[in-house]
Amino acid sequence: MTLSLYLEVLLQGILTGLVYGLMALGLSVIFGVVRVVNFAHGEFAVLAMYAAFVLFTALHVDPILAAIPVAALFFVIGWLLQRFVVQPFIVRPQHDQFILLVGLAIVLVNALLMIFGPDSRHTNLSYSYDSWFIGPIIVDKVRAYAAAAAVVVSAALFAFFRFTLLGTAIRACADNLTGAAVVGLDVKKLYALTFGLGLACAGAAGAIMVALTDVTPMLAPSFTLLAFTIVIVGGLGSMAGALLGGLLIGVVEALASILVEPSMKSMVSFALLVGVLAFRPQGLVGKPA
């Protein structure tokens, strides 16, 4: 009985962790290539949650399907953001970039607060409470769909970087910026593209997340922290690390919520972050500096 409970929670953690991983993937891609830390990442994810929420309430679009248009929209936002706001900061000290994006994060979260108010909004899907039985384990349908969607989007991104010319060009920028510029790559364009892709990840993850949890503007800073924790635990700049970190944090938080107390679950992931920083600062997958 208790074993099946643990297995259930473990599976829940894995499924939620895949969605977390997708969100963190966006942060990792942006940092890995553009070398800018998107401090407003969680804020964008929450913005996407509201976009999916509005699509659902107004047009009855399933949030998991809404991930596609929302991701497309966020790609455009990311492109424009990089082109017009972040690009002039590329040569500036790191803390200036950080403060700029902190400012953006404040603006986003308070704009959401003014429009939607502080109350949490719930998306009631027709299959919200459906589940499957695998032996003694209960699997939430909605969580399984959400995880599957996150895997599909992540796989598409991996394939893009692995197999397309454009993806290879972006990886070249990440590996050797000067070299990339010497062989004639348009670095500015590739940066804008990368930022777009990173925000598209946040957008897709946010839209999918609406199916799993209620949305309030207050989620935003905690999502930013969550994404950072995942990326650092996994290894900054490593795409596989982001997904692995997502899984790990998802599982750890799920287990913590039954072993300790639900409201203290993020404390456990911070403990993990501190542990990783103290003993393996390059992250689980990253190479030693």
Binding site: V85, G103, L104, V107, V109, N110
Partner: peptide
């Protein structure tokens, strides 16, 4: 009649971005 704390933080955020830029 606007959300006062929200508006204040929003303006401060914009101010911060404008200064740093």
């Amino acid at each position: 009649g606007l959300n006062a704390p929200g508006t204040k933080a929003l303006v401060f955020g914009l101010f911060l971005m404008a200064i740093i830029a």
